[in-house]
Design a protein around this nucleic acid. Structure first.
Length: 417
RNA sequence: GGGGGGGUUCCCGAGUGGUCAAAGGGAACAGACUGUAAAUCUGUCGGCGGACGCCUUCGGAGGUUCGAAUCCUCCCCCCCCCA
């Protein structure tokens, strides 16, 4: 189809980039993909008004799909969010209100639009809310129309159910599979959707959808799953000091987002370049050859590319600039995260460093700030501070700013105005 | 419905009347070493106050006690077996 990607086919590219875990009837799917514009979908959870880095993999899956001339559908599980979060453990499942879901949906759509071209064209993406077709569906109606198509025996054999059986699962959780299968069937019926993609944990649900679609719509549809993303260190993808890495700049600043990728484990760089950037194959293979400290160059490319995709090239460049200023010497200090304070705050006894550290967001509490100071982790204008009661005064202002630093990586400038 | 087991700090998991803010491990953070990496060693790891201190926490609500995560009552949730 479209060859700006440098790959013969969508599946080829997915395999090379590491998205491909398994799929149903690969041969038939490959043929379908070369024969026509295929509509494919992935589901996202609207449990927050922003997606986080964990969703980046499926997002990129849709991006590649669209680049190969196919049509992506992002479906947001408004209906599933209405009945509760399946990942909840001991605590009550949080059930979101319709308004919350609507708000979250808008936030997510905004984010996805950085990656996917939405619109009315044949290859333009769609964003749909499954609440639209599930919300008013009556229980009896559902049972009457579709109950016969679901085999409990088969559902019980799904891995996703089996693993949950050990710790118990509620009827709600058991039903996600049915809801998701129903989504696939509806999307096929109303939008000609032929493929569902998702994490490997979705395999069972996807298969259920394929079965249902075959039975109800009498059409063959396909499934493709991505591998479970773990870091080389064996932890879940996307955690930092301050929690999850979000796509929303309001939750994770561009600077922190960029830094996240810079700080990736050496062993993950090659894999991440393939998965999270759109760089051509030759460029990535070139970067993969780098060894030792040179890998940092690959990390800079990775961080720059991933950040640019989400926040734009300008913002990514600024983040790179800040990084250079903080770690490389040189560079422009303007891009370092900062806050403003009136000059008056530094008159007389000045402002307690402890408070400045907390208010700047560098640290969570004064207790933590105290501990950090005790551990020689706090610097003001590059100087290690050992006095917990240290106050910031006019004497600390350099070029209209005071540079705070915690550890080696966390920086904040107070701009005095 | 009956019987048994269980819900502990971010996660796993000890603790069964005071010495428990709660063992141990993991994660995380910091210091040293480095390459803003990994590995390793060391330290920190509920909140507030300079410290001897105070406050909040062990599924929820009450109660017994000088004193409870630990005992009692009721409730909620989970697992297993029986019906």
């Amino acid at each position: 189809m479209n060859n700006e990607t440098g790959f013969a086919s969508f599946l080829d590219e997915m395999k090379w980039r590491g998205f491909f875990e398994q799929c149903t009837d690969e041969k038939a799917l490959a043929e379908l993909l070369t024969a026509e514009t295929v509509t494919a979908y992935i589901g996202f959870d609207p449990t927050a008004d922003s997606l986080h880095i964990g969703s980046l993999l499926p997002i990129m899956g849709l991006v590649h799909l669209q680049r190969h001339g196919h049509r992506p559908i992002a479906i947001v599980g408004g209906a599933t969010a209405m009945v509760g979060d399946p990942s909840g453990r001991t605590e009550l499942r949080s059930m979101l209100t319709l308004e919350q879901i609507e708000r979250n949906l808008q936030g997510i759509k905004e984010q996805l639009s950085h990656y996917i071209r939405f619109g009315d064209g044949p290859q333009d993406g769609l964003m749909l809310n499954n609440a639209d077709w599930l919300k008013d569906f009556g229980y009896l109606e559902f049972l009457r129309e579709y109950g016969q198509f679901f085999s409990v025996n088969q559902m019980l054999t799904r891995d996703s159910v089996k693993t949950r059986m050990e710790h118990g699962l509620s009827f709600i959780e058991f039903n996600y599979m049915i809801l998701q299968a129903f989504d696939f069937m509806v999307l096929n019926r109303d939008h000609g959707c032929r493929l569902q993609m998702g994490g490997s944990d979705q395999w069972g649900n996807i298969c259920s959808g394929i079965d249902l679609t075959r039975r109800v719509n009498r059409q063959e549809v396909y499934g493709l799953t991505f591998p479970l993303m773990m870091t080389a260190a064996g932890t879940k993808m996307g955690k930092t000091a301050s929690g999850a890495v979000w796509l929303a700049a309001a939750r994770t600043s561009v600077h922190d987002f960029y830094q996240f990728w810079i700080n990736v484990d050496d062993r993950d760089v090659a894999r991440f370049l393939r998965l999270y950037t759109l760089l051509p194959r030759e460029r990535i293979e070139e970067l993969e050859k780098l060894q030792g400290a040179d890998i940092r160059e690959a990390k800079r490319v990775l961080a720059g590319e991933v950040t640019a995709l989400l926040h734009g090239r300008d913002a990514a460049d600024k983040a790179a600039e800040a990084a250079r200023a903080l770690f490389g010497g040189g560079g422009d200090a303007e891009s370092i995260p900062s806050s403003e304070r009136p000059e008056g705050d530094f008159a007389g006894d000045g402002l307690l460093l402890l408070e400045a550290l907390v208010e700047s967001g560098l640290l969570k509490s004064k207790g933590e700030a105290r501990r950090m100071i005790r551990q020689q982790a706090v610097r003001v204008n590059g100087e290690v501070i050992s006095d917990e009661m240290r106050a910031l005064s006019a004497a600390d202002i350099r070029d209209g700013r005071i540079a705070l630093q915690v550890g080696k990586k966390r920086h904040h400038h107070i701009l005095v105005g």
